[in-house]
Design a protein around this nucleic acid. Structure first.
Lengths: 305, 305
DNA sequence: CGATCTTACGGGATTCGTAAACATA
DNA sequence: TATGTTTACGAATCCCGTAAGATCG
């Protein structure tokens, strides 16, 4: 039967502060009798008098004096917690933590985040730029709410929202013979010196596995850790390469030329990965919404035209 | 309109803990629909969903996850505060601070506190053994709730509850001529060497002022700080003295003989001093009650018979 | 189909506000 | 006497519980 009400606490604090029932009425939006009853009830709950009422003057009992700061603190805590939640839901504050594979994080993601920040400037966004496999791991164990990466396949605890197809495109320098072609085959591309990524990236593994499967041999003449270095090497004429279509923009900026790659066309769906049965925060939800809404535009941006 | 309820918080915590509405019902003694409504209302108040309900499984939203420990803490604080108050009023805990003039603190007070402690063993009692004037000061400025001392006279912020009359009695050694008298006059007593208190006690001042007023001269042959020393000196035959009737017991224990003093009879009311308009704690209230109830017995104890 | 949450609605308790009574300075 | 609190009572509100509906596994 131990049941007190926040309203009673508010009433108590108001009376204690104003030292008057009448004045406290205004603060708690109650009539005198109602307030009187509320205090009376509270006193019954706590087992004794909190005020000494002499119809003329009000004084806190020593017990009330002890209780006053405590009640104040409780109400303060409630208010703070409520404000915090309100702001969080209104996205006047909050935080989204997401993971994205490097090719996406360095290409399309910044624009999306910019778009998001325009709408919700008070929500902080943290990006984990990790390889595709780690993106999946970080989502699965809850380190991030949202991941952007390749379709992780069948994980029964994950949800995948496809955004666009990422495929490999050939990267050659402008004077290269293949640059005049509309599209090139892997066979033709690999006749030149091939520059590849050295990092434990799924990109390289994917290329090698697929090509080996088709009986083609890859002879990487150069290896590097950075995508930017590939671009530079290609432009310098050291060789050719193949990169995810996500990186077309970057390659072009560096002066390299991208062409469609066929036989085979290597493509994988890129999308948003979230955890099943773990709802997103409103902040994360709206980020996902923005990314989804931009799916068409993203698809365009990885086109060669 | 920012109004949440502790009941709602309890409901929220229960659901969050059990991960199920049905199970939480038992904990909060509510039907499922009622609980559902309570959560719904809470979510409206905070501005967003705290749970993700899929009719089959319940999961906290990230916002709910943030809120959970906060809500828990608030409820915990409420419980603690309520328990504390309950115990205080039930006097299973608490504290009384009082001040008493030395003559009372060293004579009758210990017995009274003992009586009190038998009834309320869990309430700690602190005694300030200070001179009569300081007792009044400590009560007035709120350092103590209760004081026992002489009637402080007209203080409009103090309440005085008289207990008994304390008067001066003569103290002589057993072989002293006056010991055979029923009562002695100040005149007769002062013919012998007079031992008096040295401390800034109201006792000495009272004696001197009153006697001077009556044209009598006091020749203190010995001065001491301790009442016990007076007794010892008297018994040793160094002289005679006059002490408050409160100290009769102590004098007798030391082997001295007490006799009524007249011409004049010096007596002042001793009683309980409390602050007006500042209600007592229940603990203090019951101590006062006990002392008041013992008033008659106390009056007897300061009699010579 | 079964388990679980949500919505709908009637009954009941709590609580509110107005008016009158009461108590102190 | 005047101010301010408490008691009395009618009324509105809120909240709960039962029953029916909806949804997911």
């Amino acid at each position: 039967m131990a049941n007190i009400t926040l309203k009673q606490l508010k009433a108590f604090v108001a009376v204690a502060r104003t030292q008057s029932f009448t004045d406290a009425c205004i603060q708690v939006h109650l009539s005198q009798p109602a307030l009187s009853l509320a205090i009376k009830k509270l006193e019954e709950e706590v087992g004794g008098a909190l005020f000494s009422r002499t119809t003329r003057a009000i004084a806190l009992t020593p017990e009330g004096e002890e209780f006053y700061p405590v009640a104040r603190k409780i109400l303060q805590d409630c208010d703070t917690a409520l404000d915090d939640l309100n702001q969080r839901f209104a996205m006047n504050r909050g935080r989204v933590v997401l993971a994205a594979m490097p090719s996406f994080a360095s290409s399309l993601l910044p624009g999306l985040i910019r778009e998001y920040r325009v709408l919700y400037p008070s929500v902080s966004v943290t990006v984990n730029d990790v390889i595709a496999e780690d993106v999946v791991d970080m989502v699965r164990n809850g380190q991030v709410e949202v991941g952007v990466t390749f379709d992780p396949g069948r994980f029964d605890d994950l949800t995948f929202i496809p955004l666009f197809e990422d495929r490999f495109v050939a990267v050659v320098y402008a004077q290269h013979p293949l640059a005049s072609e509309e599209s090139v085959s892997w066979q033709a591309l690999l006749e030149d010196d091939f520059i590849t990524l050295q990092q434990p990236s799924s990109i390289r593994l994917l290329i090698e596995a697929k090509l080996r499967q088709l009986g083609m041999q890859v002879h990487p003449e150069f290896e590097t850790h950075q995508l930017a270095t590939i671009g530079r090497m290609v432009v310098t004429g050291l060789g050719v390469s193949a990169v995810p279509s996500l990186c077309i923009g970057q390659m072009r900026e560096q002066g390299a030329v991208c062409r469609e790659l066929h036989t085979p066309v290597m493509s994988r769906p890129v999308g948003i990965v979230t955890r099943k049965r773990y709802p997103l925060s409103t902040a994360a939800r709206s980020l996902v919404d923005i990314i989804q809404a931009s799916a068409d535009r993203l698809s365009q941006e990885v086109k060669l035209t």
